[in-house]
Design a protein around this nucleic acid. Structure first.
Length: 585
RNA sequence: GCCGAUGUAGCUUAGAGAUAGAGCAACUGUUUCGUAAUCAGUAGGUCGGAGGUUUGACUCCUUCCAUCGGCACCA
């Protein structure tokens, strides 16, 4: 999908279109005040204060109509530069503009205004020459949006739109939006019986159906094998912990609002655990550790519960009950770089195995001013952050830095992906932590016989199995690779009377070799069964009739192809076994 | 949590102040047909839950729940 912000020409057009929209809104809502209207990847939006009015579906059409009218009038767009004093005077009745202007530095910023017909807006520009250049636009969606992005502030009205150079581009874009809905994991998950939810279980608590459970199990087996080879030791720990456990870790103070409320049982107070670090800290602390033992890598496929805000819950992507592909690496300070690097390598390796290319690294750092969230130890933070940077630079990874996005205990490297619908989410994460080992009083005996505190690396390659599955379904459009497919082979006998026996023989051959095979003996036409086999996106459909039976052959059709290939049954078995084993994508 | 929208059979959906209509799926029969839907019939809905207004509510109102688009949040 085209990135409008990055495209010079479209960027200017969309920005101008935001002004055109503002002008139209001003005509329809004379009391409207305007905050900011930036260009984004998907087009533009404008945040507006409409007093007591709120935007509804039908208003979008009204605004759009007015925009078309203004566009036809074809007024020129004039730029003028003014002093800060003049700007403040001109916009004195508009608190939003006053706020913007008063924060501008007169010496370094040119304050400019753009005027089209009866509408003037404070703006840096640039713009198109005339509103008549803005013809092919569409208002896409609307919502409330907090002023300055702070939920304590007033909620403004935001309208999103997009503008293109010609009708065809606009239509293509609208078409792409429709297609995105088609590959939404919630739709695919329903169509392919991957997961369900139920009011009686609760919001954000997906139930994995048999098909989904197969995918998840395969993912678990896959990553378990990788981790085992890298020296990870896997554990099982309880899904609850005492409140004291989380007070010790510090999570209670930082996140208790996002935990399910504690429950008192006898004299103890428990919470459903929101993360597994404390449990793993205790496992580390269970033994006396030597510097020779490190690094110690403790892994777990751990179910966690987080009381996510009701508005945040979404399919398998953002849930209240999730399973993390979690691990904690306990390392000596001199091992940080190497272990961190191994994690980055593992991430790249795994993404390659799945053929994933649309992802970005993000280095999340602390905000030095935020003394409340982040513990105060400059040296520790600087060391940790520089360490991560160093490795990323060594590795030549492209990444962006995000100030104030670090965890309270340390900086992190996240891998961000874009779902079919909605904003980017984090898939993999790798976090450096100098704090929790201290809080749990962890140690190892160093070479010189003194006690030292280990450093912890928190990491999750798949993130959660839930979110990873969601992303995988969207990336593959539900066409999972053979090794992950719930049903790998579907057998259709040409004639139920004459070919059932041979079909059952092939079924047994495949089933005995642990291939997930289905045999369709229903009293239906072959074409009917083929249609269903294709809509269920089954990788191999076998057609078995006289020709196959008489010559010990199978004839197969791969998903998405039209051709049929015949081959000896044992040859086919070898072929499919190899494909599964090699995890061909 | 906030702003807005939506909730009709297993799925996709039409309709609407006077006891709901379809397609697919299911079931019964029919067809035995070599690569994306054989034909016919049957059954299936207290129209998300709870209150209220009304002679009468699926339709109007209140509230709760869930879902969707954003905002905020995301250890």
């Amino acid at each position: 999908m085209i990135n409008i912000k990055e495209d010079k020409e479209l960027n200017v057009m969309n920005h101008s279109c935001a002004h055109l929209m503002a002008q139209a809104v001003k005509h329809l809502y004379p009391h409207a005040l305007f905050w900011v209207g930036p260009v984004i990847e998907e087009g533009f939006y404008y945040d507006m204060d409409l007093g007591d009015d709120v935007i509804k579906e039908e208003d979008l059409e009204r605004i759009e109509k007015e925009m078309k009218k203004l566009s036809k009038d074809g007024k020129r767009i004039y730029r003028e530069e003014i002093s800060k004093e003049e700007a403040l005077e001109r916009f004195k009745n508009d608190p939003y503009k006053v706020d913007l202007i008063s924060r501008m530095d007169e010496d370094s910023t040119v304050i400019s205004c753009y005027t089209q017909g009866d509408f003037t807006d404070l703006c840096r520009g640039p713009h198109v020459d005339s509103v008549k250049e803005l013809k092919y636009f569409k208002l896409i969606k609307f919502s409330g949006a907090y002023w300055k992005g702070d939920s304590k502030n007033k909620m403004l009205q935001r309208v999103y739109g997009v503008c293109f150079k010609n009708e065809e581009d606009l239509n293509n874009y609208m078409h792409e939006l429709e297609e995105a809905k088609e590959r939404d994991h919630r739709k695919i998950g329903k169509d392919l019986d991957i997961f369900m939810s139920h009011d009686l279980v609760g919001k954000g608590m997906p139930l994995w159906l048999p098909n989904g459970a197969i995918v998840r199990k395969e993912l678990e087996n896959y990553i378990y094998a990788k981790e085992r080879k890298m020296g990870y030791k896997h554990v099982y720990t309880p899904c609850v912990g005492t409140v004291d456990l989380y007070k010790t870790s510090g999570h209670w103070d930082h996140y208790k609002e996002n935990m399910f409320p504690s429950m008192k049982v006898d004299e103890e107070e428990f919470v459903l655990r929101p993360m597994n670090c404390p449990h793993h800290m205790l496992i580390y602390g269970n033994e006396l550790r030597s510097y020779r033992d490190l690094p110690i890598r403790i892994g777990e496929f751990a179910t966690d519960f987080r009381y996510e805000a009701s508005g945040a819950v979404k399919g398998l992507e953002r849930v209240r009950c999730m399973c993390q592909n979690d691990a904690h690496l306990f390392v000596r300070p001199d091992q940080i770089g190497e272990e961190f690097k191994k994690v980055v390598e593992l991430i790249l390796d795994v993404y390659k195995d799945f053929g994933l290319k649309n992802y970005k690294f993000r280095l999340s750092l602390r905000d030095k001013e935020d003394k409340e969230k982040y513990f105060d130890d400059d040296e520790m933070w600087n060391t940790a952050e520089n360490k991560l940077r160093e490795v990323l630079n060594d590795y030549g990874c492209e990444y962006t830095e995000a100030i104030g996005e670090a965890a309270f205990y340390g900086p992190k490297l996240d891998v961000e992906v874009k779902p079919a619908v909605g904003p980017e989410v984090t898939l993999s994460t790798c976090q450096l932590d100098f704090l929790l080992p201290r809080r749990f009083d962890l140690s190892y005996i160093d070479k010189d016989g003194t006690k030292k505190t280990p450093v912890v690396i928190h990491r999750a390659i798949f993130g959660t199995f839930d979110r990873f599955t969601a992303f995988l379904l969207e990336e593959t459009k539900g066409v999972l690779p053979l090794w992950l497919s719930p049903v790998q082979v579907n057998i259709i006998p040409v004639n139920n009377e004459y070919h059932t026996e041979y079909s059952k023989e092939i079924y047994k051959l495949l089933d005995d070799n642990n291939i997930r095979v289905n045999i369709d003996l229903r009293d239906e036409k072959l074409s009917y069964k083929m249609r269903e086999s294709q809509t269920n996106k089954i990788p191999y459909t076998l057609i078995l009739g006289d020709n196959e039976k008489d010559n010990n052959l199978v004839s197969y059709r791969c998903f998405g192809t039209k051709e049929t290939i015949s081959m000896n049954k044992n040859e086919f078995l070898d072929k499919i076994k190899e494909e599964i084993e090699k995890r061909v994508i």
